[in-house]
């Protein structure tokens, strides 16, 4: 239940920021959307199995599904790459309209 609320909050805030003025907000909004979707995929593995898929696991309950974890792991790194790329574009925009005080497109 809490996971659902967390995902809802992340997606809602992410959507809000993406639609606001200011490119930095858009970038942060994408980061939050990424968090939300990553949590959703992880949760798809089931939240009643929370053990680490490792030798001598110390987690709680039975071992968690490793497949969504692998998906999300690469997704996290790719989300980082996307964020960095967006920031590169943002900085390029700063360089282009420094006089506009980085207003960004409305």
């Amino acid at each position: 239940m809490t996971t659902a609320v967390v995902v809802a909050l992340l997606v809602a805030t992410g959507t809000w920021l993406v639609l606001r003025r200011g490119l930095l907000r858009v970038v942060v909004g994408f980061v939050l959307l990424g968090h939300g979707v990553n949590l959703l995929v992880l949760t798809a593995g089931g939240t009643d199995r929370r053990g680490f898929a490792l030798p001598g696991q110390q987690g709680q309950g039975p071992v968690a599904d490793p497949l969504p974890q692998a998906f999300v792991l690469t997704a996290v790194v790719i989300a980082f790459a996307v964020t960095v790329h967006l920031l590169g574009l943002l900085r390029q925009g700063q360089a282009l309209d420094e006089d506009d005080d980085a207003e960004g497109p409305a």
Binding site: A4, V7, A8, A12, R20
Partner: peptide, 26 residues
């Protein structure tokens, strides 16, 4: 924008709630 944010958040939350945590290990 606010409506859209609430809508998207609600959709994602409802999706998470209704579609996960309801089955055995894949």
């Amino acid at each position: 924008a606010a409506l859209l944010a609430v809508g998207a958040g609600t959709a994602a939350g409802l999706g998470t709630w209704s579609l996960t945590g309801r089955r055995e290990l894949s």
